[in-house]
Amino acid sequence: MNEEVNPLPSLEQDQTSEQTIEEIVASLGDTVGQPRVEDPKMSVSNVDVFYGDKQAIFGVDLDIANNEVVSMIGPSGCGKSTLLRCLNRMNDTIPICRVSGELTLDGEDIYSKDTDPVLLRARVGMVFQKPNPFPKSIYENVAYGPRLHGLNRNKADLDDIVVNSLKKAGIYNEVKNRLDESGTSLSGGQQQRLCIARTIACSPEVILMDEPCSALDPIATAKIEELIDELRENYAIAIVTHSMQQAARVSQRTAYFHLGKLVEVGDTDTIFTNPRHELTENYITGRFG
């Protein structure tokens, strides 16, 4: 969790040589590969992010299309979580964080004055690293979002939304008989799927996932990965992951970040079989990270 809340220490750790981050980043050169796609759902153009005086993201361009999973990989502190949190303005909650550049959803600038963060977050849902169900019943957890936004007309509507969301998150069969039990009583993997169901219940258009499996065991991870693949049919998905295998399994495109810079982006297959940038190759072959 520390990574998102305070990415600075790890950034500094990476700064082993006497060069400043800015110099290192400049030496990385332009992004390799094609960050743009046709008809993007979300689009990131020349985005810089600062925490106070320190720059965490350097001029990143990236598109996220409908019905695809984009994975963001890179060593810790490379800014991938920071970028993800910019996509639904979760970084607003950190007072010293400043974002410049253009981020759009369906062509509308999400950082413009007219865009409302509440509405944005309803459209762009987020799943966090550690499962964080509310200390309420399973039903209430899922019903939370629709209730907030007034998406249901009546109780029956709400029941429908809850059941559908749980079904889509592939957890309905496991919990259908105990919807009144506390969400925290579930196992870690179930909790994370509950959180996904909670996100789906708001009927978002994009789902952001911040290392959703890092706190889970392999079996739970496999289930979530399967789920991500199914969700792709309806949503645009961006996932930050530490595991290259996971990126290879679930995503169609992969973006490799280093020290806040997008180093290389392209089809997942290409990146993993034939990386063009030296750093990407080093990372993928396990020389660091």
């Binding site: 969790m1 809340v5 639904n88 979760m90 909650t93 509440v118 509405l119 944005l120 977050r121 309803a122 849902g125 987020m126 966090f128 550690k130 964080n132 169900p133 509310f134 200390p135 309420k136 939370y144 979002g145 907030l148 936004h149 959180c195 909670r198 996100t199 708001c202």
Partner: peptide
């Protein structure tokens, strides 16, 4: 109350006061 709780609620599009009233205070 862990920050993750607040993030979860804000991430769903709750306003700050909604998060406090419906998540933080109950927790």
């Amino acid at each position: 109350v862990p920050q993750a709780m607040r993030d979860g609620s804000l991430g769903l599009g709750a306003t700050k006061s909604e998060t406090i009233k419906r998540v933080v205070i109950p927790a």
